[in-house]
Amino acid sequence: MDTVKTRLATVWMGGCSGCHMSFLDLDETLLELAAKVELCYSPIADAKEFPEVDVTLVEGCLANREHLAEIRHIRARTKILIAFGDCAITGNITAIRNSVPLGVVLSTAYGDPRFGQTQGVLPVLLDEAMPLHEAVKVDYYLPGCPPSAEKILDLVGSLLAGEPVNGSKRFG
């Protein structure tokens, strides 16, 4: 078996990092995984530039324009892109704001309908938070809030072993 490790990346966008927590709940199996995989980019790895990778787990939906630019950047550099968790797939909690105009959301929360949108410090929010597949092609979906550690292992494991991905999937 060649020892070339699969290049894995994980990304955290418009989400609460609960999916990454669940990923860490793999506990000791993380070691087995680490043997087969090289984690090239992740909030839990120190890498500035998103490199060419084989598999990317993207948690969270596209809530602002930076996310939108980033997801296109990622799509161009990963062979397989997995929508990781309900937020990435349905918009979930982050998209609850969509049924209210953005200006109303911001003025309700911060008293200013354009709060943080003009100084060029925070990324400008999209009018509506979007699931990943409304912007780029997504190869696999892993629903759950968060998807359990077993489900993550099941999917990533099958991909690594080149086996077909099945197994029941459930929102919520």
């Binding site: 929508a83 797939i89 349905t90 918009g91 998209a95 969509n98 049924s99 209210v100 509506e128 699931p131 597949h133 409304e134 997504v138 979906y141 892993l142 629903p143 029941s168 999937k169 459930r170 929102f171 919520g172």
Partner: peptide, 20 residues
Amino acid sequence: QDLATSLGVDHVRVRYRHPQ
């Protein structure tokens, strides 16, 4: 939710309407 699981719906291809 159960039906979506049993039918293998893992994502929604149409746009979410987000009505109020």
